[in-house]
């Protein structure tokens, strides 16, 4: 199918992009990698008056360190994220989960920022950034502001971004293996291409065989990505062994409100969340 007509702007700086968004009248869509937006336009599920292509803004790409934070430009592609040495060293969970996004061609075009701003609860990266306690930096006419991942995802396909704001970078606290961190992203889906029925992003910090800290993000367990807080709390101080982890994982679906679709009922999703959380935490806890 074929998109409806739209006007097109291709700013070359963040400032220009923000100005373009601020000046825009009618419905505006930001085009990042386009791997979610273009199918939506082709199916005529959206009719923007203006598409702002941020693909030619160099400052939005790349990965850098900033003290104890890792900073990833919003337009860094999935492919670049997977292969970036800094990401692999300090945010291994993100690299592992990003390899599960879409397929190689999609990962060449799709971007971290685009995926987060699209805020589909079935996509993998929102829950991952949530589990990493990430922060998202938005640029707007009034300057920049930092939004914690917990506050960023507000509803199904909705974020805290204002219409004239642009997501410019993602800041992640470094979590290195040397500091005892293990991680695992457990994605459960029916075919390689399909969305996660449920996904579990687990970060586990260990000290001497015991779990000292854990952060667990859940994919597709509600209208936004959520943290499995009850399990996180139950894991603190637990031995990194199957039985205590399984007990803690029993609470993984507490407080979630998963949706129903052809592949899964809410009840099945809750069950999967418990099973997959156990597996993800154990895999993370056993990581060398």
């Amino acid at each position: 199918m074929i998109p409806a007509a739209f006007d097109y702007a291709r700013p070359e700086t963040v400032d220009e992009a923000v100005r373009t968004l601020a000046d825009a009248r009618g419905e505006t869509k930001v085009l990042a990698g386009g791997q979610s937006l273009l199918p939506i336009l082709r199916l005529r599920l959206a009719f923007p008056d203006l598409v702002v292509d941020i693909g030619r803004i160099p400052e939005l790409r790349g990965v850098r360190e900033d003290g104890d934070k890792l900073v990833i430009g919003a337009m860094t592609t999935h492919h670049a994220v997977i292969h970036d040495p800094l990401v692999r060293q300090y945010a291994g969970l993100l690299a592992e989960a990003t390899a599960e996004v879409g397929d190689p061609a999609v990962r060449h075009r799709g971007t971290l920022g685009g995926s987060l701003a699209h805020a589909d609860p079935a996509s993998d990266l929102p829950a991952v950034v949530l589990a990493l306690d990430g922060e998202l930096v938005a640029a707007g006419p009034q300057g920049r502001r930092t939004i914690p991942a917990r506050d960023f995802f507000t509803d199904y396909l909705q974020t805290a971004l204002e219409p004239d704001e642009l997501l410019v970078e993602v800041r992640l606290p470094k979590t290195a293996a040397a500091d005892g961190w293990g991680f695992h992203y457990e994605k459960f889906h029916r075919v390689a291409q399909s969305w996660a029925i449920v996904g579990v992003a687990a970060m586990v910090r260990r000290d001497d065989g015991r779990i000292t800290e854990s952060r667990i993000g859940l994919t597709n367990m509600g209208t936004t990505p959520v943290r499995a807080e009850a399990t996180e709390a139950a894991l603190v101080g637990a031995a990194a062994e199957p039985d205590p982890v399984a007990r803690a994982a029993e609470a993984a679906a507490d407080g979630t409100h998963p949706s129903s679709d052809v592949s899964a009922s809410p009840e099945y999703r809750e069950h999967l969340a418990r099973v997959l959380t156990r597996r993800a935490v154990l895999a993370a806890a056993r990581m060398e």
């Binding site: 085009l31 273009l38 082709r42 292509d53 061609a105 999609v106």
Partner: peptide
């Protein structure tokens, strides 16, 4: 890089 040309605009 491999891309799906149905999911890239010609202007891109």
């Amino acid at each position: 890089e491999s891309v799906k040309s149905c999911t890239v605009l010609a202007v891109q």
